[in-house]
Design a binder for these strands. Sequence first.
DNA 1: CTGAAAGCGCTTACAG
DNA 2: CTGAAAGCGCTTACAG
Lengths: 338, 338
Amino acid sequence: MSNLTLKDIAKTLNLSITTVSKALKDYPDVSAKTKERVRAYAEEVNFTPNAYAAFLRTQESKIIGVIIPRLNHYFFSNVLKGIMKAAEEHSYMVIVLNSEESYELEQKQVDRLLRQNVDGILMSIADSTHDLEHINKITKQNIPLVFFDKYSKLSNCSSVIINDQNAAFAAVEHLIKQGKKNIAHFRGPLLPQNSIDRFLGYRKALDHYGIEYRKEWVFRCDDISSDEGYAYTQSIVEEHPEIDAIFAVADMPAIGAIKYLNEQKIEIPNQIAVMGFSNWKIANLITPGLSTINQPGELMGKKAFELFYTELQNIKKGVIAEKQIVELETDLIIRNST
Amino acid sequence: MSNLTLKDIAKTLNLSITTVSKALKDYPDVSAKTKERVRAYAEEVNFTPNAYAAFLRTQESKIIGVIIPRLNHYFFSNVLKGIMKAAEEHSYMVIVLNSEESYELEQKQVDRLLRQNVDGILMSIADSTHDLEHINKITKQNIPLVFFDKYSKLSNCSSVIINDQNAAFAAVEHLIKQGKKNIAHFRGPLLPQNSIDRFLGYRKALDHYGIEYRKEWVFRCDDISSDEGYAYTQSIVEEHPEIDAIFAVADMPAIGAIKYLNEQKIEIPNQIAVMGFSNWKIANLITPGLSTINQPGELMGKKAFELFYTELQNIKKGVIAEKQIVELETDLIIRNST
DNA sequence: CTGAAAGCGCTTACAG
DNA sequence: CTGAAAGCGCTTACAG
């Protein structure tokens, strides 16, 4: 809109479009004097080159697309922050799309990003995604694709993840070492790999310490919400009084549990200990503080961008490199809820 | 990358580029048979038109830029969610930038968005922004600009805001009606309008009910963080034992206050009542629940997009319309902290 | 050191 | 109903 072009500048300065373009891009074959003239004028009139026209030549949009399953989510916000910071450093901009854990939306959003000719796509798969056709579309077009956190074992793509199974094992092991024997699990939805892996880590820890697994002590949180945690804790207290600890797939259900227990004046951790997963900010703000597993969100975002970036360079050079899986460290954070 | 073009399709189908383009855009002057052929083939080869080339003709990027001062922030995430949902409905994509409350970053990001030729910019001003030159750049280029939440009274732009002064008044009035007389205020930084207005609302309420204002009971939270709230509450308890209520500029400092009071086993609200502002999710998850002012984030985002959209239509039609200020309703939410 | 020209992939007014 | 052609605003190989 009402933006100046190279042509306008060329006309005003009595130069060719070529020379103006070169001057602005600091080509060595333009005289210092001309460069100075052009630059001064461009500054004066606040010239901003048209990114679209440039793209048409260079075929690089300098934009990446990010699809996250939840926007108002401490962990994913942190990942996004990491991505955006790294992108900024490489002069990239980020189009953000929120799939709201919906497979249908996710498919549409992939299409939209492809149409936009983004230079790459970074995504975390929605809970309801059960099919990878849209993912294949991306890889077929030879566009770098990087998964973070919720990835797919079936697609051969670069990914930044944590070892959910080991982390969950450590969490449950900690509960056991605190003397807890009847440990319930609030698991996540059925499809996503991380909710499966955290469940498996729970089972493995029970196994390892010779504690019987009881499937009626596993409660499914499809929304991974505090409300679910609250409601399940109520039914635990009322129907399974022998349960002495809860390991939740994420902090939110754990916080719902703590809320209920606080209201009922049930002692945490003496009567029931509560363990979360993710280390949201809120985990340290409630009373008692929530023990949890720290998941390095910002670092994950940074790494995801870097994987994209090296992959893009490889493609440009025509190098076919192995896809990389980066596994980040997690820590057990012990607070007063265990 | 490796993307088909209209030319490729035209060649394969033995048609002209024109006809292919028209067929795909459902122009009336193309035969149904041809349209069908083109569409079927485009589908088969997964053709995605090049958005940049299209832009160069239409001068519409179908992208907006959003600058928010904080990313990992319940309220701003909600606004973003509202913006993105509305954008999606209008086939717009959203480039998100995080100014981290920094004036310098904000300036750079405005430049980057202008260079990208976004169709409009939606932003909330950083706490440290003390100058509007970058804002003027946007309006000079005749690009729609809409502020949300943190706006500037000095620039004539469309804005979606709340009445911070009235909302703060209602919050403090509620404390007074609960019998509180010695009410401290955790105020925000000096520059942003909303932190000024909330402070003014606090003063107005005191005035209105004949309570003396004491400036040593006002504590400045430059980061609007729980840590600041925690530390100030400690000094209140130790140095100003007569204080019986706290009104905080936002939920985070209020939650820090509650954390400290809980640790010290100081009764809330009997000894000290605590009032927040914004109604973050966490406000209802801590014990006691935090009384606060509900700020409709998602709705604010939706309205901001709509303001942008009507402004864009006006510009296209050459209509010069008044800038609009939309003021959204807030509610007093009473929980157990007051 | 400067500039004319081709071309990126579309859209659309115009001709037939 | 179909197509040749101009043009959006850049970049860059090439000529002078």
